[in-house]
């Protein structure tokens, strides 16, 4: 990835997805949420093999088919056409969530509305009176998958911080997120709170602090 250009500020959606992919160990069973997390599959390092699980009943999910080859009965959790790779299997929803809830899936990458400094995640409802709640499989994923990564813009479209001391939206799960890949930084959720792991090109620690509604610890020298 070329991040050396001095004019560049921050990471693109694709770069956030690539950075997340690089932090997933070889041989992992991976579930990708809808949106930016779906892009992770495009950036698997060449020397690694991941097996993708989609909660609607497919292990060994492959990329989208060529145009014209879509099958309305071969879709992902976002209801988009996908393919099944050699070695794939189909199963019913009971089995699919046995994999999730039973701790058989290693990594899940999700989107977020808010993440708290303790790793609480809110990504299913704003809690507004006229909002129609729609939770899907997110609560099962955060309850059962071993490692939960979040990929998200650092702030909302209106510039409101998504990384906060305490979530104001209804929670999806408590103390579940371990790492956040934003357009400004990679941030770990640690027992001491948010800690910057890496800054995006052209972004300063102070700038990330300004756009975060919680204390932020600087990069730690290991």
């Amino acid at each position: 990835m070329n991040t050396e250009n001095s004019k560049v500020k921050g990471w693109t959606r694709e770069q956030m997805a690539e950075l997340a992919a690089m932090d997933i160990p070889d041989g992992s069973y991976v579930n990708l949420g809808i949106g930016i997390p779906e892009l992770v599959a495009k950036f698997v390092p060449e020397d690694r093999e991941f097996i993708y699980h989609t909660e609607n009943g497919l292990l060994g999910m492959g990329p989208a088919p060529e145009p014209g080859q879509e099958d309305s009965e071969l879709i992902n959790a976002g209801k988009k056409a996908v393919t099944a790779l050699p070695g794939a299997s189909f199963f019913h929803h009971g089995d699919s969530f046995t994999m999730i809830r039973g701790g058989h899936i290693d990594v899940c990458v999700l989107g977020a509305m808010q993440i708290s400094q303790e790793g609480d995640l809110a990504n299913w409802s704003t809690g507004a009176p006229d909002a129609i709640p729609a939770v899907g499989g997110a609560m099962d994923l955060v309850a059962g998958v071993k490692t939960i990564f979040v990929i998200s813009q650092h702030t909302t479209k209106n510039g409101v911080a998504k990384l906060v001391e305490k979530c104001s939206y209804p929670l999806t799960g408590k103390k579940v997120v371990t790492r956040v890949f934003s357009d400004l930084a990679i941030i770990d959720v640690t027992p001491e709170g948010f800690r910057v792991r890496r800054l995006a090109p052209g972004i300063t620690f102070e700038e990330v602090c300004e756009k975060t509604d919680a204390p932020l610890l600087p990069i730690k020298a290991y």
């Binding site: 909660e55 019913h92 929803h93 009971g94 969530f97 709640p133 729609a134 939770v135 899907g136 499989g137």
Partner: peptide, 12 residues
Amino acid sequence: IVPQGTLAERIR
């Protein structure tokens, strides 16, 4: 509203 996995397990 029921989480997807809980919905599946309640049916199972």
